[in-house]
Amino acid sequence: MAGEPAPVSWELLGAGRQLAGALKVELAGVLLGQGVEGLANEAWAYGADRVYLVEDPVLGPYRTAPYARALVELVQRYRPEILLLGATSMGRDLSGAVATALGTGLTADCTALNIDPATRLLEQTRPAFGGNVMATILCQRHRPQMATVRPRVMPLPPRQEGRQGELVRVGIDLKEEEALATVLEVIEEKGKAVYLDRAEIVVAGGRGLGSRENLRLLEELAGVLGGTLGASRAAVEAGWLPPEYQVGQTGITVRPKVYFAIGISGAIQHLVGMQNADVIVAINKDPEAPIFKVATYGIVGDFLEVVPALTEEFRRQLAARST
């Protein structure tokens, strides 16, 4: 939880709230950066009882060394039982350095976190072997128990406007020379599926599309619904959509209200990225496709016929309702 807040920070507070409840302890958030004090209100609103704030110009741009040092010092001073970070690039970069410095265990990319009431241990569940297997990991004797959680795996907790907590300002003596690196430039990658993980409606296509041209049909459906395109790895490897659109184990995890899986077979590596959708709609010409096992609604058929029919029906029924 650093600098500009990644939304996963609030998801972590939701997960942390439950763990803290089970352990009957307090939940604290950590804010590292420069000019980030205002975010404490957000942290309280999403469930933190306390916020540790380290503000320092050295923490302006993210660099591993000073961020790791600040977090390590906080942990050594305040001794949390559990430390959670978002499994973003930055979160994974930082958590590996911090866990090593603390000499404790770290479990990456958890999809479920639970407290064993008998032992107070954190049960950290994550996919392994490319998602073919789930493993529950424990960190028995070392503290803190550290885990990263992927964005969109945990639900966003309700925001409690005006909820207040305690602010603890911590000064840590950081030096620019010890940062070891200088960020020269940050280039925003424009036109990418940046918000795919926050999209409420995802229209995703797979190898079954057969060609890039056929994407047009999905774009039309997404257009009517205000949805965002997504892709299976096969569709990305075919070059029909850029890698940023890939949903799954090695792509993005999404948690939309509705996920359309069109011409996607439903390999486990794809499922782990989308099975938290509220509703899954599968369109596949193969009635045996595994995607139908997870789909809320399925239509067996050729997407070339089904998708245009869906687009037209949505257009018609949505228009009818609004009049």
């Binding site: 479990t107 990991i137 424990l138 099975q275």
Partner: peptide, 21 residues
Amino acid sequence: GSPTSVRRIFAPPARPGGELI
């Protein structure tokens, strides 16, 4: 020297399937 240990491994839970239209 390894703080973490695997308590158990299992097949990924299946989401209950739905309705074919």
